[in-house]
Nucleic acid binder design. Structure first.
Length: 450
RNA sequence: GCCGGGAUAGGGUAGUGGUUAUCCUGAGGGACUGUGGAUCCCUCGAGCUGGGUUCGAAUCCCGGUCCCGGCCCCA
């Protein structure tokens, strides 16, 4: 019996691996053009890093284990926390802002389905320590460019927690998580009923989240004016919302520590202006709240079609995590792209360099190896393949043909005695004698064109 | 964790409670000891797993594993 892959994991065959590599490179080229530098962090971390960030409830979906020394470790379920941990311990004294990006596998113990696996890849960026509107616009525009670079058309929704959290400040702390959850889950009727029940339906929350785009922004500005007049500083969200207020028995990541979010409508308006300057096509949508307590400013999500139930391919926003990991308070903006979901809908041309086969008779094997060595130093690079099965010339040519070789170089005693080699064009079925140097030149010309 | 559908050579498949389990493709070799993907020949290669029913199970039943889709959740 053969051994199976663990549930929710995948093997990537050469073709798929090549496709993933190209898509990754296309998006990383964009990151590079925007000045983001790649970092990488360990595959496993102390469990505490993730529970601290996202609450104890993530334990249900985390691959955690004690090591032989009794430490509680976890396979990383995401990459923002590790990157911020690294920032706090190694990069706090480096010039601001820090533009970091990453690509790595992550692990979650979840039920696999379309676009969801237990081992998956995230590609993301963090812009640490910049001014909010500028950073937010840059992050959103950057993710837009990255997706465009692989031919993915998508739908960008941008929300603002500064406003939502300030509005929630008018509601009893114990009710806030539930309201957030209902906004996030788009449970409109339940939200309306609940706000009625607690006597807060006058806030305008329902009207706000039902509006999209420019109208939503106008409404938001109106609300902010009213809120601004009556706001008391101490009335902003306090950071000790009791998690008992969560629905009993419910599993959710929304139980982490909350952070302050100031009502700075002017900042959000600036973000919107800058996004327009970047030429990003987006939709203002205050229903985007990303549930989590550490988000503090603009938040955004990007959706794509053709992905079944898992439509979201990117999520991000402005957050405060540095202080949570023991660093100085530093607000950052970041986003993560679901690489596997993007791979499902990517539009990139797949061209493969067709290899060159060295076809030789057994008596000149040593010379064939030397020739292979020369050709492998050539630029542009081209796969050079030597038979290792002791096959006949016929069989070698057959193998070359079925591997899609562009050229075969035939090497035998006759050729070597004449000081030349036979270059066979596999597509045309023609062949000619050349010196090795001439063959190199011809191959260079051919592969430069393609 | 829940619901539904699946699992037969490396890939794709057919079929039946009863001899050597279809077919296509693939892979290796040969016809073709120095020239191609055709053709022909040979070879390799399979009923997820554990139990039950039965004279006999790949087929029927139950559990498990994995896959696909949906729910839940999605840092």
């Amino acid at each position: 019996m053969t051994i199976q892959r663990p549930r929710g994991t995948r093997d990537f065959l050469p073709e798929e691996t090549m496709k993933r590599g190209r898509a990754r490179k296309a998006m990383q080229d964009v990151l590079e053009r925007w000045g983001y530098q790649e970092v990488s962090t360990p595959t496993f971390e102390h469990l505490e890093l993730f529970t601290k960030k996202s609450g104890a409830s993530v334990m249900e979906e985390i691959y955690s284990f004690p090591d032989k020394g009794g430490r509680d470790l976890a396979l990383r379920p995401e990459l923002t926390a590790p990157v911020m941990r690294m920032y706090v311990s190694e990069l706090q004294n480096s010039p601001k802002p820090q533009r970091l990006c990453y690509f790595g596998n992550c692990f979650r113990y979840e039920r696999p389905q379309k676009g969801r696996f237990r081992e998956f890849w995230q590609l993301g960026a963090e812009l640490i320590g910049g001014a909010k509107p500028d950073s937010e616009a840059e992050a959103i525009a950057l993710s837009d460019q990255m997706l465009k670079s692989v031919g993915v058309t998508c739908d960008i929704h941008v929300g603002y927690l500064g406003l939502i959290r300030s509005m929630l400040g008018k509601i009893d702390a114990q009710h806030r998580p539930q309201v957030m959850r209902m906004i996030d889950k788009k449970e409109h009727e339940a939200l309306e009923a609940f706000l009625q029940e607690i006597g807060q339906s006058h806030l305008g929350l329902q009207e706000l989240i039902n509006l999209k785009g420019k109208k939503a922004l106008d409404k938001a500005i109106d609300i902010a004016k009213v809120l601004g007049q009556v706001k008391e500083p101490s009335d902003i969200l306090d950071s000790n919302v009791p998690s008992e207020s969560m629905q009993a028995g419910r599993s959710s990541a929304r139980q982490g520590r909350s952070v302050d979010a100031e009502l700075r409508m002017d900042e959000f308006q600036e973000t919107v202006n800058l996004l327009e300057a970047y030429g990003v096509d987006f939709k203002i949508d205050f229903e985007i709240v990303r549930g989590l307590e550490y988000y503090s400013g603009t938040v955004f999500e990007i959706y794509a079609e053709g992905l079944g139930a898992q439509r979201q391919i990117c999520g991000g926003g402005t957050y405060e995590l540095a202080s949570l990991f023991g660093g100085k308070e530093t607000s950052s903006t970041g986003f993560g792209l679901g690489f596997d979901r993007i791979m499902e809908i990517v539009q990139i041309e797949e061209k493969q360099t067709s290899p060159v086969f060295l076809v030789y008779t057994p008596d000149v094997k040593v010379e064939a190896i030397r020739i292979a060595k020369t050709l492998r130093r050539m630029d542009p690079k081209v796969p050079v393949i030597l038979d290792v099965m002791g096959r006949s010339l016929t069989a070698q040519l057959k193998a070359a043909a079925s591997a899609g070789a562009g050229f075969a170089i035939i090497i035998g005693r006759d050729e070597l005695d004449a000081g030349s080699l036979t270059l066979r064009d596999m597509k045309e079925g023609t062949q000619e004698s050349f010196t090795l140097a001439d063959i190199e030149d011809r191959l260079k010309m051919t592969f430069l064109d393609s």
